[in-house]
């Protein structure tokens, strides 16, 4: 049952609610002007935040904050278009799937394909993430998705990546330990991955190379590492821009030579 605390603050108890009903309740809350929604006892409900554009205008969506206590299900914030979501717990697969705009901050770890095909918005994961993180992220015009992972990820990080920025902080690695991912950036043809922590040549996928950090990368690092620290209350003093390597595609046309003309 949802309970209205004030006109702009709403709490919803998600215990036992099927996802369709929970999402409908969130939409209803947004349509009556809620600006801050707290979801309690979330346990596996999918698509939270997916369709809120029918309930409010662009400006209201950009200001909307959703706080999740518990573990949301797959496709959290799929097609997300403006709101900010903060999760106090872990998230499952497909977080920020094909998202357009907004922010997802996870105080925990994430499952597979975090940020899959995202075109914009920001995703911060405090700990580690699963397979194919940031796969096929793109960018367009001023839209540029950012994924920040506090720890490490599994294989195929940034596969097919066509744009955007992934920052891997490596904070969960032991001293001297290598990152968990291999085949990083396979088929990558745009965007960049900035990695801090142990990385060996064999972990790089086809079509990706190590290049020097540019000024804009340093600026991005300063900005997003600080944001990471702020969001999670973590001391990031140990994280230094010079500890990062930049992985970038060797070609915008990785498959140009594949065909016979």
């Amino acid at each position: 049952m949802s309970s209205i605390i004030t006109n702009s603050k709403v709490e919803i108890d998600a215990a036992g609610l099927p996802y369709r009903e929970l999402n409908q309740q969130i939409r209803s809350a947004v349509s009556i002007g809620a600006k801050h929604i707290t979801l309690r006892n979330v346990a596996g409900q999918r698509y939270i935040g997916t369709n809120l554009y029918e309930a409010a205008d662009r400006k209201a969506l950009d200001e909307l904050e959703i706080e999740i206590l518990g573990t949301p299900g797959n496709d959290l914030g799929m097609f997300l278009d403006g709101p900010s979501i903060t999760v106090y717990g872990n998230v499952m697969d497909g977080t920020g799937n094909t998202m357009n705009a907004g922010r997802i901050v996870v105080h925990g770890r994430a499952g597979d394909i975090t940020g899959f095909s995202a075109r914009g918005g920001e995703i911060f994961i405090r700990d580690d993430a699963g397979y194919r993180t940031g796969i096929h992220m793109k960018e367009f015009g001023s839209m540029r998705p950012i994924v920040v992972i506090g720890g490490t990820t599994q294989d195929f990080l940034g596969e097919y990546m066509a744009g955007g920025l992934i920052i891997i902080l490596g904070l969960t690695l032991k001293p001297g330990e290598l990152h968990y991912f291999s085949h990083v950036g396979t088929g990558m043809h745009g965007g960049a991955i900035l990695v801090r922590g142990g990385l060996a040549d064999y972990q790089l996928g086809n079509g990706v190379g190590v290049v020097n950090l540019e000024e804009k990368d340093r600026d991005s690092l300063l900005k997003y590492v600080e944001l990471y620290g702020t969001y999670f209350g973590v001391d990031v003093a140990q994280v230094n821009v010079d500890q990062f390597v930049k992985l970038a595609p060797l070609s915008k046309r990785p498959y140009k030579q594949l065909y016979a003309y």
Binding site: R46, D75, D93, N97, I113, E139, F140, A162, P254
Partner: peptide, 30 residues
């Protein structure tokens, strides 16, 4: 397509959020 002009538009062989009928159901309902 909402991608920069002049870059390859690559469609991977599978949809990487669909590896099973259960996953397909997830996208259908998304």
């Amino acid at each position: 397509r909402m991608i920069p002009a002049g870059t390859d538009a690559i469609s991977p062989a599978p949809q990487h959020d669909i590896y099973s009928i259960e996953d397909l159901r997830m996208l259908v309902y998304a």
